[in-house]
Every structure is written in C-alpha cells, then in structure tokens.
C-alpha cells in the first residue's frame, strides 16, 4: 500500500498552548479516514496544521506527504503538491469572482506541473462539469467568492473547488456542520465521485451522520489532542450511540 500521509508523533499548538499532544497516523492511497472527537479535542487544529495555517506552531514530530516533508512547505506549495483543505468556515472574498479565483488557482497548479494554462473554452467546460457534480448553478461563477452564499452553498463550493484541483489528499474540516440533509447528500455524493485508488480523504467530523454517506475505512477518535482509539466504520456508530464519555474514561484508565 502506498502511504499518502504519514503523521508521526505530531505535537502542535497555538499561542503557547499545546493542543495536539502526539498524533500518529498513516493514510494510504485509496483510503478514507475519519477523525471524530468532541469539541476542543484538536480536530480543527490538525486540519489547520496540515494546511499550513501560520498561527499554529509545530512543537515536535513530522508529517510526510507523498515523498516530501509537509511541514517545510508553504500553504500554496502544499496545495500545488496535492493537499486540499475544505474549510469549516469558507471565507467570503468580495470583488474576486469564483471563476477568476479558480482560473488563477488551476493555472498555478498546472504551472507547478510544468503545464500551460488551459484555454478559456476548456476551462469553462471543466468548471461546468465539476459544478454539476455538486449541483451548483453556473451563475455562481461570476459572483464574488462565497459572498452572500448560504452555508450549504459555501460547502458545495468547497467541494467544487476540490473537484477542480483534484487533490491527492483532501482534508474535510467539519464539512457537514450546518448542512441540512439534502445539502449533506449532495456534498457527500460529490466527494464520493472523486474517490479513487490514487487519492485519499481525511474527514473530520463531530457527528457520525456524514459517515453514512462517505463510508470510512478507518475511524480515529481524537480526545484531548491524542488519538485514543482507532477502528473500522462501526466505531463511528458506537460513538453516535454512546457519546464520547465512555471512550474518554476508557483511555484515561488505559493511561
């Protein structure tokens, strides 16, 4: 099996506070891993550190992405190398149209691979194709990025961008939060359509319901900055049923 992401004893924090207290996990090509955990367990911190958000400091440990040292790379290089973060709170950017934004992003990705920009016709065709995947109306292309979008539209836009950039590893940071059941299904269908034996997904969520649609190969439970339990998809169901307390108790007994 080909590892795409290898996290080894990662410790990281923000403003002098350690949040991730030694995380290790390996995601192989073709796999979907879910990271579940209660609020404040460090789920979003992990996503932020992987994407390279600069307010977070890595204290120890390593992250290898494909063949490279992820932590040495700028956020833009991580993206160009095939890492994608679907934001929990996508940012509204007035004055920048979704189409121009994506044209720039896709051109940068292509340049990184030594390819010329797509001609306008092919690019438009590609955008329409990928928008259909998440049932987005083409009128969104000319609108300012995320500005005035509903919560569901923003999340669909994240998956649309993911489809355009075809990452090796996509990190979905609570992409399910704030979605009604229809939007959840659309987003999940979009993600499933992108799954292949060459890429992998790290799905961060508080609730199990998204995992009914995006079925994980491995579920990790993150509590207080540590992975306290890993298992198959049935672990998610157990968490849904029993909450997080039993596992917290179990892990503190174990420690």
């Amino acid at each position: 099996m080909k590892p795409i992401l290898t996290i080894d004893n990662l410790r990281a924090g923000i403003e002098g506070r350690e949040i991730l207290k030694g995380i290790s996990l390996t995601v192989n090509a073709g796999e979907v891993h879910a990271i579940m955990g209660p609020n404040g367990s460090g789920k979003s911190t992990l996503a932020s550190v992987l994407a390279g958000r600069e307010d977070y400091a890595v204290i120890d440990g390593s992250v290898r992405f494909a063949e490279a040292d992820l932590l040495e790379m700028s956020p833009e290089d991580r993206s160009r190398e095939g890492l994608f973060l679907a934001f929990q709170y996508p940012v509204e950017i007035p004055g920048v149209s979704t189409a121009n934004f994506l044209k720039t992003a896709v051109s940068e990705h292509r340049k990184h691979r030594g390819l010329p920009p797509l001609d306008p016709g092919s690019f438009l065709k590609l955008m329409r194709e990928k928008m259909a995947l998440v049932e987005m109306d083409p009128s969104f292309l000319q609108r300012s990025l995320n500005e005035g979008f509903s919560g569901g539209e923003k999340k669909r836009n994240e998956v649309f961008q993911m489809a355009m950039l075809e990452p090796k590893l996509a990190v979905l940071d609570e992409t399910d939060s704030g979605l009604d059941i229809d939007a959840l299904r659309i987003v999940a269908d979009g993600v499933n359509a992108l799954r292949s034996s060459e890429n992998a997904f790290l799905v961060i969520t508080h609730y199990q319901r998204l995992l009914n649609y995006i079925v994980p190969d491995v579920v990790h439970v993150l509590v207080d900055g540590r992975i306290v339990k890993s298992g198959g998809k049935e672990l998610a169901l157990e968490l849904e049923e029993r909450g997080y307390d039993w596992i917290r108790n179990e892990s503190s007994v174990g420690a």
């Binding site: 994407a51 956020p75 991580r78 160009r80 940012v91 920048v96 934004f101 720039t104």
Partner: peptide, 17 residues
Amino acid sequence: FYLRSRGIGENDARAIL
C-alpha cells in the same frame, strides 16, 4: 490563507485581494 491554501502564491494572493 484561503487563497494560498488553493495554490495561489503569497504575492499573488496579496495582489488579488
């Protein structure tokens, strides 16, 4: 950060915004 996380370099991201 949002722009950079999509592969747009720091200078270009500044220029775009």
